[in-house]
């Protein structure tokens, strides 16, 4: 009788241990997957995006080192360089193209260099989620304080 009780306890312990073991393996595997995804063959590429016709006060709302995100909150990249220039207005009159540079501090054209974690395949840059980054593509991106409607200038 005593022997049977002890044996049952051992079997119960064994299954409990098995359950704990698989739980630990599951957690470890999940953590491992996240890590693999993040580091897997992705490298940082500088992508230049052009943000045109933005108010100077709005441009002040973005800073070097900030992470900019896509609509669904995924990180697109980190801003590494901000080049600001006054916006140039173009008018056409009697077959002539007339350009006018707006005064500093009003409306600006901004070239942002963004370090994007991506991989290159057949000359095309792909982000971690598989979306391609192509020159000429229009993007709507978000920083902590600003919304950017920008065009990919070079990728």
């Amino acid at each position: 009788m005593m022997q049977t009780t002890e044996t049952r306890t051992r079997i119960f312990d064994f299954f409990l241990l098995l359950a704990v073991f698989f739980s630990v393996v599951g957690i470890a595997q999940r953590v491992g997957t996240f890590r693999t995804d993040a580091g897997e063959t992705l490298t940082e590429f500088p992508v230049v995006i052009l943000w045109e016709n933005a108010d100077a006060q709005t441009v002040d709302c973005i800073a070097k080192g900030e992470v900019i995100r896509t609509e669904n909150g995924e990180a697109f990249g980190t801003v590494t360089e901000i080049r600001r220039a006054p916006h140039e207005s173009v008018l056409y009159h009697e077959g002539r193209e007339i350009r006018k540079v707006l005064p500093a501090g009003t409306t600006e054209d901004v070239r942002l260099t963004v370090a994007v974690l991506a991989r290159r395949a057949d000359g095309v840059l792909f982000r971690a989620d598989g979306t391609a980054i192509l020159a000429g593509q229009n993007l709507r991106l978000y920083s902590l304080r600003a919304t950017l409607s920008a065009t990919v200038f070079s990728a």
Binding site: D55, C61, V67, L144, R145, A146, T147, L148
Partner: peptide
């Protein structure tokens, strides 16, 4: 609410919008 952006309710509040 300050997270990855500023939100009031579910609406993102950001310059340029």
């Amino acid at each position: 609410r300050k997270g990855e952006d500023y939100r009031v309710g579910d609406i993102r509040v950001s310059a340029g919008a």
